[in-house]
Amino acid sequence: MSSIILLGIKHCGKTTQGKLLSKHFSCPFFDTDDEVTALTGKTPRELYSELGKDAFLEAEKNACKRLAEKLSGSERAVIATGGGICNNPDALAELHKIGTFLFLNADEKTASDRIVREIAYDAVGSMKNLPAYIAKENPKNVQDVRAIFHNFYIERQKLYQAVCDIEIKLEHSASKSENTKKILACIEADGGKK
Results as ranks from 00 to 15, higher is better:
109 K>C: 09
102 L>T: 00
92 L>T: 01
95 L>W: 01
117 R>N: 11
116 V>T: 02
84 G>M: 09
112 S>N: 07
101 F>Y: 01
88 N>V: 04
101 F>K: 01
95 L>D: 00
103 F>A: 12
96 H>T: 09
117 R>P: 01
82 G>K: 06
113 D>T: 05
108 E>Q: 14
84 G>F: 07
111 A>W: 09
120 A>S: 09
110 T>M: 15
83 G>W: 02
89 P>N: 13
109 K>Y: 09
119 I>C: 05
117 R>M: 09
97 K>G: 06
108 E>T: 07
88 N>Y: 04
115 I>N: 03
122 D>P: 10
83 G>E: 04
122 D>L: 13
107 D>H: 08
103 F>E: 11
83 G>D: 04
112 S>E: 05
111 A>E: 12
117 R>Q: 13
91 A>S: 08
118 E>L: 11
110 T>C: 10
102 L>E: 00
87 N>C: 14
97 K>F: 06
124 V>G: 15
103 F>M: 11
101 F>Q: 00
111 A>K: 11
123 A>Y: 11
85 I>R: 04
92 L>D: 00
124 V>C: 13
118 E>S: 13
87 N>L: 15
85 I>L: 10
117 R>Y: 06
82 G>D: 07
91 A>H: 02
113 D>M: 05
84 G>H: 07
111 A>T: 15
93 A>T: 13
96 H>F: 09
108 E>A: 13
103 F>V: 12
91 A>L: 04
110 T>S: 14
82 G>A: 08
95 L>M: 02
114 R>P: 03
102 L>Y: 01
101 F>N: 00
86 C>K: 10
101 F>W: 00
97 K>I: 06
119 I>E: 03
107 D>S: 08
96 H>G: 09
107 D>L: 07
93 A>K: 14
87 N>F: 13
97 K>L: 10
112 S>R: 03
82 G>P: 08
123 A>N: 14
125 G>M: 01
106 A>F: 07
100 T>A: 08
83 G>S: 10
89 P>Q: 14
112 S>L: 05
114 R>E: 05
125 G>T: 01
121 Y>F: 13
109 K>V: 12
106 A>R: 08
94 E>R: 06
94 E>K: 10
110 T>I: 11
111 A>H: 10
125 G>I: 02
